[in-house]
Structure formats: C-alpha cells, structure tokens
Amino acid sequence: MNPGPDVTDDGRSRLQETESSLKAVFARGLEGDHNAYRCFLQALAQNLRAFLKRRIPAYRDDVEDLVQEILLAVHNARHTYRPDEPLTAWLHAIARYKLMDFFRSRARREAMHDPIDDHLDLLSAVDDEPLEARRDITKLLEALPDHQRLPIVYMKLNGFSVKETARITGLSESAVKVGVHRGLKALAARLRGV
C-alpha cells in the first residue's frame, strides 16, 4: 500500500516490484483471465492483511472482515481503474475509504455502549414539556368561541374526521371546516400579538 516518507531504497524497489506484478495480473484479469484475477485477489488480500494489522492493531479480530470488504469494493470498482495510473495508489484510496467507514461504524457502535456513570441522574428530572404545552394550548383555546374551539379540539387534537366532529358538536360539516380555519387563524393572530 502507501510506502510513507521513511521507505528505504530496498523498500522502494520491493514496492515497485509489487506494483508491477499486481498490475500485470490485474490487467490480465480484466481481460478475462480468471486465474490471473484470482492470483491478483490472493496477493492483494495478503498485502491488505499486513497493511491492516499495522494500521489497526487494536482491532485484529476485524481485519479479515475488512479485507473482504476491501476486496469486494476493488472488484466492484475495477471498471474505474485507469491503466496509466499506479495500481497501488488506486488500491490504497479504496482501502483508505473502507478503513474510514470502519472507524465511523465502530465509533457509532461504541457510542451506543457508553456506560451511564451516574444512574441516579437518570431519574433526577422529569420532562414535563408535553404537559406544559398541553396546558398552554388549553389556555389559548379557552379564548375562542365554542364554534371554533370545539372543531379544533375534536379534529386537530383528538383526530376525529369532519363528519364525526359535526355529529358530536351539532354543527354542519361546512361549519366545522370554517370553525377550524377561523379558529386557527385567530390563534395565530393572538400568538403574533395582533
């Protein structure tokens, strides 16, 4: 994969050798040589294992799964490789993205398992916001006349249909619709301070 800044001449020549051999079998594989493609994937898997064991030593159990994910990504993206580009740079980019996905996924999973340090804090407060909101709505609705307030209560707060609301309130269906419309308009004006 990526050599890094402190690679010796011997390491550089080994990387060039790896690049050449991988590129050759990869190219033959793209041309339809199934054995060459299998050799490419096997060699890549070995390189990926070594790369990942150095990069994520704390997650050795996840290395093989990550190798398989990268191999699959390489296989699925093989049509995007440009032969005039270095193969190892293209492979490194794919491996790096999969590694970033791994860390993001791992961070999300670990965040879900954060211990609750102070279990007493869990029960120390109650969220009474819904109760306060209901009290505020009730107070606002009290200012409306019945022919506006009741349709809003039955339809908007209790989920009844126009027909059901008309039957319960004794208003006509059109009066229910008008009552809801005018009542909501009056409430909006009141909230704006008009």
Rank of each mutant, 00 (worst) to 15 (best):
L52K: 03
L48R: 05
R60A: 14
H79F: 14
T80K: 15
L71R: 04
I56Q: 08
A45W: 03
R78W: 12
I70M: 04
I56F: 07
R49F: 01
L72S: 13
Y59Q: 08
N76P: 05
Q68V: 01
P57Q: 06
L72R: 13
R49C: 02
R54I: 05
R54L: 12
V63Q: 02
Y59P: 03
Q68K: 02
T80P: 06
V74Q: 05
L48C: 06
A50E: 08
N76D: 14
R78M: 14
D65W: 06
R55F: 06
R54F: 14
V63I: 04
T80F: 13
E69K: 13
F51V: 08
E69D: 15
K53L: 12
L66W: 01
E69Q: 15
A58G: 11
I70Y: 06
K53W: 12
H75D: 08
I70Q: 05
E69R: 15
A50R: 15
Q68I: 00
P57W: 10
T80L: 15
Y59I: 03
R78H: 10
N47E: 09
R78Q: 13
L52W: 02
V74M: 03
A50V: 11
L71N: 03
T80I: 11
L48E: 03
F51I: 07
L66H: 00
E69W: 08
L41Q: 15
L66D: 01
D62I: 05
L72C: 13
K53S: 08
H75S: 11
R55P: 04
N47C: 08
R60H: 10
L66N: 01
A43F: 01
R49S: 05
D62M: 09
R60C: 09
E64K: 11
I56A: 11
Q42H: 14
Q42L: 12
D61M: 08
A50K: 12
D62A: 12
Y59F: 14
H75M: 12
V67I: 00
L52C: 04
A50P: 04
L71Y: 03
D61R: 13
L52Q: 02
D65A: 09
A58N: 07
D65E: 11
N76W: 13
V63R: 01
Q46F: 00
L41E: 10
L41A: 15
P57I: 06
V67S: 00
R60E: 08
A73G: 12
V63P: 01
E64W: 09
R55C: 04
A45M: 04
L66S: 01
A77P: 09
A50I: 09
Q46R: 02
A77I: 07
E64S: 09
R55A: 13
Q42M: 10
Y59R: 11
Q46N: 08
A45C: 07
A73S: 15
H75F: 15
L66Q: 00
A43P: 01
A58Q: 12
A43Y: 00
I56C: 09
R78C: 10
H75L: 14
V74R: 07
R60L: 13
Q46S: 03
I56T: 07
H79P: 03
L41D: 08
R54N: 11
E64T: 06
V74P: 07
L44F: 02
R78K: 15
